[in-house]
Protein backbone atom coordinates (compact mmCIF):
# COMPACT_ATOMS: atom_id res chain seq x y z
CA UNK A 1 0.00 0.00 0.00
CA UNK A 2 1.19 3.48 -0.75
CA UNK A 3 1.46 5.80 2.19
CA UNK A 4 0.53 9.44 2.04
CA UNK A 5 4.20 10.42 2.05
CA UNK A 6 5.29 8.09 -0.72
CA UNK A 7 3.22 10.09 -3.18
CA UNK A 8 4.12 13.60 -2.13
CA UNK A 9 3.66 15.60 -5.34
CA UNK A 10 0.29 14.10 -6.05
CA UNK A 11 -0.97 14.76 -2.53
CA UNK A 12 0.31 18.32 -2.71
CA UNK A 13 -1.47 18.83 -6.02
CA UNK A 14 -4.75 17.56 -4.62
CA UNK A 15 -4.37 19.73 -1.52
CA UNK A 16 -3.69 22.78 -3.71
CA UNK A 17 -6.75 22.06 -5.75
CA UNK A 18 -9.02 22.01 -2.70
CA UNK A 19 -7.37 25.07 -1.23
CA UNK A 20 -7.93 26.89 -4.50
CA UNK A 21 -11.59 25.87 -4.63
CA UNK A 22 -12.07 27.08 -1.09
CA UNK A 23 -10.41 30.40 -1.92
CA UNK A 24 -12.57 30.74 -5.00
CA UNK A 25 -15.88 29.82 -3.47
CA UNK A 26 -15.69 31.04 0.12
CA UNK A 27 -16.09 34.79 -0.61
CA UNK A 28 -18.96 34.07 -2.97
CA UNK A 29 -20.62 31.82 -0.44
CA UNK A 30 -20.23 34.42 2.30
CA UNK A 31 -21.73 37.07 0.06
CA UNK A 32 -24.68 34.86 -0.77
CA UNK A 33 -25.17 33.88 2.85
CA UNK A 34 -25.22 37.49 3.99
CA UNK A 35 -27.94 38.31 1.47
CA UNK A 36 -30.27 36.11 3.49
CA UNK A 37 -29.45 37.69 6.85
CA UNK A 38 -32.27 39.37 8.73
CA UNK A 39 -30.25 42.35 9.97
CA UNK A 40 -28.62 45.37 8.34
CA UNK A 41 -25.02 44.59 9.26
CA UNK A 42 -22.83 42.41 7.13
CA UNK A 43 -21.26 40.31 9.85
CA UNK A 44 -21.53 36.96 11.59
CA UNK A 45 -23.42 35.44 13.30
CA UNK A 46 -26.52 35.17 11.15
CA UNK A 47 -29.35 35.01 13.68
CA UNK A 48 -32.45 34.95 11.52
CA UNK A 49 -32.81 34.19 7.81
CA UNK A 50 -34.98 36.23 5.46
CA UNK A 51 -35.77 36.90 1.80
CA UNK A 52 -36.66 40.52 2.52
CA UNK A 53 -33.54 41.91 0.91
CA UNK A 54 -34.46 40.27 -2.38
CA UNK A 55 -37.94 41.76 -2.14
CA UNK A 56 -36.40 45.13 -1.57
CA UNK A 57 -34.02 44.79 -4.48
CA UNK A 58 -36.81 43.76 -6.82
CA UNK A 59 -38.72 46.90 -5.91
CA UNK A 60 -35.66 49.11 -6.21
CA UNK A 61 -36.37 51.34 -9.25
CA UNK A 62 -32.69 52.31 -9.51
CA UNK A 63 -31.61 48.69 -9.60
CA UNK A 64 -34.15 47.68 -12.22
CA UNK A 65 -33.30 50.68 -14.35
CA UNK A 66 -29.56 49.93 -14.12
CA UNK A 67 -30.25 46.31 -15.09
CA UNK A 68 -32.22 47.36 -18.13
CA UNK A 69 -29.57 49.86 -19.13
CA UNK A 70 -26.78 47.28 -18.77
CA UNK A 71 -28.68 44.72 -20.82
CA UNK A 72 -29.39 47.26 -23.54
CA UNK A 73 -25.73 48.26 -23.77
CA UNK A 74 -24.68 44.61 -23.71
CA UNK A 75 -27.05 43.74 -26.54
CA UNK A 76 -25.92 46.65 -28.70
CA UNK A 77 -22.21 46.03 -28.18
CA UNK A 78 -22.76 42.32 -28.73
CA UNK A 79 -24.34 42.90 -32.15
CA UNK A 80 -21.61 45.34 -33.13
CA UNK A 81 -18.73 43.20 -31.83
CA UNK A 82 -20.04 39.97 -33.36
CA UNK A 83 -20.49 41.58 -36.77
CA UNK A 84 -17.10 43.24 -36.68
CA UNK A 85 -15.33 40.22 -35.22
CA UNK A 86 -16.77 37.82 -37.78
CA UNK A 87 -15.86 40.19 -40.58
CA UNK A 88 -12.27 40.49 -39.34
CA UNK A 89 -11.97 36.71 -38.95
CA UNK A 90 -13.23 36.21 -42.53
CA UNK A 91 -10.71 38.79 -43.70
CA UNK A 92 -7.87 36.99 -41.95
CA UNK A 93 -8.63 33.61 -43.56
CA UNK A 94 -9.45 35.08 -46.98
CA UNK A 95 -7.21 34.08 -49.87
CA UNK A 96 -4.55 36.49 -51.04
CA UNK A 97 -4.62 38.74 -47.98
CA UNK A 98 -1.27 40.26 -47.13
CA UNK A 99 -0.26 40.95 -43.56
CA UNK A 100 -2.88 38.73 -41.98
CA UNK A 101 -0.71 38.38 -38.89
CA UNK A 102 -0.73 42.15 -38.48
CA UNK A 103 -4.52 42.30 -38.83
CA UNK A 104 -4.80 39.52 -36.27
CA UNK A 105 -2.42 41.23 -33.84
CA UNK A 106 -4.27 44.54 -34.13
CA UNK A 107 -7.64 42.86 -33.69
CA UNK A 108 -6.42 41.15 -30.53
CA UNK A 109 -4.77 44.21 -29.03
CA UNK A 110 -7.83 45.45 -27.06
CA UNK A 111 -7.91 42.15 -25.18
CA UNK A 112 -4.42 42.60 -23.77
CA UNK A 113 -4.27 46.37 -23.26
CA UNK A 114 -4.90 47.10 -19.56
CA UNK A 115 -8.50 48.19 -18.98
CA UNK A 116 -7.41 51.46 -17.44
CA UNK A 117 -5.22 52.45 -20.40
CA UNK A 118 -7.90 51.41 -22.84
CA UNK A 119 -10.49 53.44 -20.93
CA UNK A 120 -8.36 56.57 -20.81
CA UNK A 121 -7.43 56.36 -24.48
CA UNK A 122 -11.07 55.87 -25.45
CA UNK A 123 -12.03 58.87 -23.32
CA UNK A 124 -9.40 61.02 -25.02
CA UNK A 125 -10.56 59.70 -28.39
CA UNK A 126 -14.22 60.54 -27.90
CA UNK A 127 -13.46 64.03 -26.64
CA UNK A 128 -11.20 64.57 -29.66
CA UNK A 129 -14.04 63.74 -32.03
CA UNK A 130 -16.50 65.72 -29.89
CA UNK A 131 -18.55 62.70 -28.97
CA UNK A 132 -20.43 63.14 -25.71
CA UNK A 133 -19.97 60.62 -22.92
CA UNK A 134 -22.96 58.35 -22.44
CA UNK A 135 -24.67 55.42 -24.08
CA UNK A 136 -23.01 55.57 -27.52
CA UNK A 137 -19.55 56.00 -26.01
CA UNK A 138 -20.06 53.07 -23.63
CA UNK A 139 -21.26 50.85 -26.48
CA UNK A 140 -18.23 51.87 -28.51
CA UNK A 141 -15.90 51.05 -25.62
CA UNK A 142 -17.49 47.68 -24.91
CA UNK A 143 -17.47 46.75 -28.61
CA UNK A 144 -13.76 47.44 -28.94
CA UNK A 145 -13.12 45.32 -25.86
CA UNK A 146 -15.24 42.37 -27.06
CA UNK A 147 -14.10 42.18 -30.71
CA UNK A 148 -10.89 40.20 -30.02
CA UNK A 149 -12.81 37.42 -28.31
CA UNK A 150 -15.21 37.06 -31.23
CA UNK A 151 -12.29 37.11 -33.68
CA UNK A 152 -10.45 34.33 -31.85
CA UNK A 153 -13.54 32.15 -31.49
CA UNK A 154 -14.65 32.65 -35.09
CA UNK A 155 -11.11 32.05 -36.39
CA UNK A 156 -10.76 28.78 -34.52
CA UNK A 157 -13.98 27.55 -36.06
CA UNK A 158 -13.17 28.87 -39.53
CA UNK A 159 -9.83 27.09 -39.54
CA UNK A 160 -11.54 23.78 -38.83
CA UNK A 161 -13.93 24.33 -41.73
CA UNK A 162 -13.28 22.08 -44.75
CA UNK A 163 -12.00 24.42 -47.46
CA UNK A 164 -14.22 23.07 -50.17
CA UNK A 165 -17.57 23.65 -48.42
CA UNK A 166 -17.66 27.12 -49.90
CA UNK A 167 -16.42 25.74 -53.22
CA UNK A 168 -19.27 23.23 -53.15
CA UNK A 169 -21.79 25.99 -52.52
CA UNK A 170 -20.35 28.07 -55.35
CA UNK A 171 -20.35 25.04 -57.59
CA UNK A 172 -24.06 24.52 -56.91
CA UNK A 173 -24.88 28.06 -57.98
CA UNK A 174 -24.33 30.22 -54.90
CA UNK A 175 -22.55 33.55 -55.27
CA UNK A 176 -20.20 34.68 -52.50
CA UNK A 177 -22.94 36.33 -50.47
CA UNK A 178 -25.30 33.36 -50.60
CA UNK A 179 -22.43 31.00 -49.82
CA UNK A 180 -21.54 33.08 -46.78
CA UNK A 181 -25.04 33.24 -45.36
CA UNK A 182 -26.09 29.69 -46.16
CA UNK A 183 -22.87 27.76 -45.53
CA UNK A 184 -20.16 29.71 -43.71
CA UNK A 185 -22.40 31.46 -41.19
CA UNK A 186 -24.31 28.32 -40.12
CA UNK A 187 -20.97 26.54 -39.79
CA UNK A 188 -19.71 29.37 -37.58
CA UNK A 189 -22.96 29.25 -35.59
CA UNK A 190 -21.79 27.52 -32.40
CA UNK A 191 -18.64 29.65 -32.18
CA UNK A 192 -20.61 32.84 -32.77
CA UNK A 193 -23.20 31.92 -30.16
CA UNK A 194 -20.40 31.40 -27.67
CA UNK A 195 -18.78 34.65 -28.76
CA UNK A 196 -22.04 36.57 -28.45
CA UNK A 197 -22.70 35.38 -24.93
CA UNK A 198 -19.13 36.17 -24.01
CA UNK A 199 -19.63 39.70 -25.37
CA UNK A 200 -22.72 40.13 -23.20
CA UNK A 201 -20.94 38.91 -20.08
CA UNK A 202 -17.92 41.13 -20.75
CA UNK A 203 -20.17 44.14 -21.23
CA UNK A 204 -22.35 43.54 -18.17
CA UNK A 205 -19.22 43.05 -16.08
CA UNK A 206 -17.28 46.05 -17.34
CA UNK A 207 -16.61 48.79 -14.86
CA UNK A 208 -13.50 50.75 -15.82
CA UNK A 209 -14.47 51.61 -19.41
CA UNK A 210 -18.02 52.41 -18.38
CA UNK A 211 -16.74 54.63 -15.58
CA UNK A 212 -14.66 56.71 -17.98
CA UNK A 213 -17.14 56.80 -20.84
CA UNK A 214 -20.46 56.87 -19.01
CA UNK A 215 -22.85 59.71 -18.49
CA UNK A 216 -25.22 60.20 -15.57
CA UNK A 217 -27.24 57.06 -16.01
CA UNK A 218 -25.48 54.23 -14.12
CA UNK A 219 -25.00 50.72 -15.43
CA UNK A 220 -25.29 47.87 -12.96
CA UNK A 221 -21.64 47.73 -11.84
CA UNK A 222 -21.61 51.51 -11.45
CA UNK A 223 -24.75 51.42 -9.34
CA UNK A 224 -23.36 48.72 -7.10
CA UNK A 225 -20.12 50.65 -6.78
CA UNK A 226 -22.00 53.79 -5.76
CA UNK A 227 -24.02 51.84 -3.22
CA UNK A 228 -20.95 50.16 -1.73
CA UNK A 229 -19.44 53.58 -1.13
CA UNK A 230 -22.44 54.34 1.09
CA UNK A 231 -21.57 51.30 3.22
CA UNK A 232 -22.08 47.55 2.83
CA UNK A 233 -25.59 46.32 3.30
CA UNK A 234 -27.26 42.96 2.73
CA UNK A 235 -29.20 44.61 -0.10
CA UNK A 236 -25.99 44.92 -2.08
CA UNK A 237 -25.28 41.27 -1.34
CA UNK A 238 -28.69 40.35 -2.69
CA UNK A 239 -28.06 42.39 -5.86
CA UNK A 240 -24.67 40.82 -6.35
CA UNK A 241 -26.11 37.36 -5.78
CA UNK A 242 -28.77 37.92 -8.44
CA UNK A 243 -26.13 39.12 -10.91
CA UNK A 244 -23.88 36.16 -10.08
CA UNK A 245 -26.62 33.57 -10.50
CA UNK A 246 -27.92 35.03 -13.75
CA UNK A 247 -24.50 35.44 -15.40
CA UNK A 248 -23.34 32.01 -14.27
CA UNK A 249 -26.52 30.44 -15.66
CA UNK A 250 -26.12 32.25 -18.99
CA UNK A 251 -22.44 31.30 -19.18
CA UNK A 252 -23.07 27.64 -18.44
CA UNK A 253 -25.95 27.52 -20.92
CA UNK A 254 -23.70 29.00 -23.59
CA UNK A 255 -21.02 26.45 -22.87
CA UNK A 256 -23.58 23.65 -23.06
CA UNK A 257 -25.00 24.91 -26.35
CA UNK A 258 -21.61 25.32 -28.01
CA UNK A 259 -20.54 21.88 -26.88
CA UNK A 260 -23.72 20.30 -28.17
CA UNK A 261 -23.43 22.06 -31.50
CA UNK A 262 -19.76 21.12 -31.85
CA UNK A 263 -20.30 17.41 -31.33
CA UNK A 264 -22.81 17.34 -34.18
Amino acid sequence: MRGIFSDGPRTALTAFYWAFLLYLLLPLTLMMAMSFKDASFVAFPIGNWTLDWYGKVMQDKQFLDACLYSVMIAAASMVAATTLGTWIAMLIVAEGIRGRMIIFALACLPAVVPGMISAISLRIFISTIDMPTGTAAIILGHTVHAVPFVVVMALTRLRSMPGNLVDAARDLGADNVVAFFRVTLPYLGPALLGGMIFCVLLSIDDFVRTFFLGGYRPTLPMLIFAKVQGGMSPEINAMATIVLVVTAAVGLYAEYMTRRARTR
Partner: peptide, 20 residues
Protein backbone atom coordinates in the same frame (compact mmCIF):
# COMPACT_ATOMS: atom_id res chain seq x y z
CA UNK B 1 -17.22 32.31 -66.12
CA UNK B 2 -17.38 31.90 -62.32
CA UNK B 3 -18.30 28.45 -60.93
CA UNK B 4 -21.82 29.47 -59.87
CA UNK B 5 -22.64 30.52 -63.42
CA UNK B 6 -21.59 27.38 -65.28
CA UNK B 7 -23.64 24.30 -65.68
CA UNK B 8 -21.19 21.76 -64.27
CA UNK B 9 -21.16 20.24 -60.80
CA UNK B 10 -18.41 18.60 -58.83
CA UNK B 11 -18.38 15.64 -56.51
CA UNK B 12 -15.52 16.56 -54.20
CA UNK B 13 -12.92 14.14 -52.93
CA UNK B 14 -14.10 14.49 -49.31
CA UNK B 15 -17.72 15.05 -50.46
CA UNK B 16 -17.96 18.56 -48.89
CA UNK B 17 -21.52 17.91 -47.72
CA UNK B 18 -22.95 20.82 -45.75
CA UNK B 19 -22.73 19.52 -42.17
CA UNK B 20 -25.65 21.57 -40.84
Amino acid sequence: VPPNKRNVNIVFQDYALFPH
